[in-house]
Amino acid sequence: MTPKIEIDQFSYRYGDEIALNTISLQVQPNTILAIFGPARGGKTTLLRSMNRLTEIGEPGTHSGRILLDGQDIFAPGTDIATLRRRVGMVFALPVALPMTIFDNVAYGPRMRGVRSRSQLQDLVQSALQSAALWDEVQDRLDTPAQALSGGQQQRISIARVLALEPEVILLDEPTAALDPISTAKIEEALMELKQQYTIVIAPHNVQQAGRIADDAAFFLMGECIEAGPASQIFTMPRDRRTEDYITGRFG
């Protein structure tokens, strides 16, 4: 099978500080890849590089390639807005924009130029259904999204990305700020979503990675220590450091 995403000898540095050191990874279509490891390992930088969100604010410099369907996303002439619609991002902290639930979910399609009310309604409904939020909010779509609970706001974030009709969904510790019930709801939603999408997640902890991932990659200090099928990584890790982290000896 050809990989959906291929990360090829990718490095990223902020000034003198190396955030990612020569990473090579493949993500197969319709699978969940979990990038796990202790803080400051480069997980967030890798996720943000995959739809070029690293270029906001104080950008660093990269080398190597990231291929989406065989095309280098850093190639000159790449339309960043299109890339970000194909590769959507859900952040660690739930952020609802200060507008209604409907407007939050319709935001991406509107930026793309979708104006038709009925088309937007369809997109919003199916996105909210896929994010397992429709039943809870369908009768109050015109109320402010910031009045929702943290768990609901995080599912709004997921729905907002789904409304883009993306191909890949990136999630950066999406349950870090959530309670166990909300976390379970989001994990369930992700298991459903991988039928249609390719998912890369920096999980909240090793247990979460073990619950949902098809493949896993262990990141430590900007290096990819080891990558492979989740069943192997979490039961028979080849590297001593992976084993130590999984069994809780450090991290």
Partner: peptide
Amino acid sequence: PVAYREVSYGLGASRWQMVRTVVLP
């Protein structure tokens, strides 16, 4: 908040779209 800008960019907004829909309001 910077987070609003990131969400907006992340959803494929151009810089001007981001300014118009998130920053100015």
